[in-house]
Nucleic acid binder design. Structure first.
Length: 216
DNA sequence: AAGTTACA
DNA sequence: CCGG
């Protein structure tokens, strides 16, 4: 059996319903695309990517940083949003306008026209990096969706149910794809399979994921 | 508890 | 041997 990428039909629908309230926007027309990667680099210069440790004491294979009024962090004591970057003691870099515009447009296209993110978690995946199944539940208002933008190398996204053991669907995510989930799907478990080696024309051997949330 | 491994 |  060929892998998920080869198994996709030759012409992909631009919008795929993953579940109720959850939409995958394939090849979303990224506004200000040329500005996105330089913006990530500028954020990383002020708030470096780091491998956080989970409450269970495990080092995440994905490296993270954040921008916006609140940043997602974890350590032995738990998951949380913090106005300050624990690594620097300073506020997170401001959310670039091109990020906020992208998140708003994608959310609107998926049926969430009022989305105004105040946090963007930036995940850096190198080959082998993964995110095991988890829920996004540290935000205060679950009426607000999650908007997840894929850049660079392709990855396989797992989208499960509200219980960790529920069966998970898998979706190939490529550069320019945006997954949006909210409503009845807001607390679904989700994750990313280990990144395969590859070479993206613009991003090289890495995947960068921008995950927008309304944390507060 | 956003992790890893073993094994059927 | 690969993948779920």
């Amino acid at each position: 059996m060929a892998d998920l990428f080869d198994a996709l039909p030759p012409v992909e629908p631009p919008r795929v319903a993953m579940a109720e309230g959850a939409m995958l926007l394939r090849g979303f027309a990224l506004p200000f695309e040329a500005e996105l990667l330089p913006a990530v680099e500028a954020i990383a210069a002020a708030a470096p990517f780091r491998h956080l440790v989970t409450p269970g004491g495990h080092r995440m294979s994905v490296a993270t940083t954040s921008c916006g009024a609140a940043g997602w962090v974890t350590d032995r004591s738990g998951y949380r949003y913090d106005a300050l970057d624990p690594a620097t003691g300073r506020r997170w870099p401001a959310m670039p306008a091109c990020f906020a515009d992208l998140a708003r447009q994608a959310a609107a296209a998926a049926g969430y026209p009022a989305f105004r993110p105040d946090a963007c978690l930036i995940n850096l995946y190198l080959p082998g990096a993964r995110l095991s199944l988890h829920q996004d539940r540290n935000e205060r208002d679950f009426a607000q969706p999650i908007v997840s933008v894929s850049l660079g190398l392709p990855a396989v996204f797992q989208f499960g149910g509200e219980q960790r053991g529920d069966p998970a669907q898998r979706f190939a995510l490529r550069h320019g794809d945006v997954a949006v989930w909210g409503g009845a799907s807001r607390l679904r478990f989700h994750g990313v399979m280990p990144l395969k080696d590859g070479d993206h024309p613009r991003l090289g051997g890495r995947r960068i994921n921008l995950t927008f949330r309304k944390a507060r």
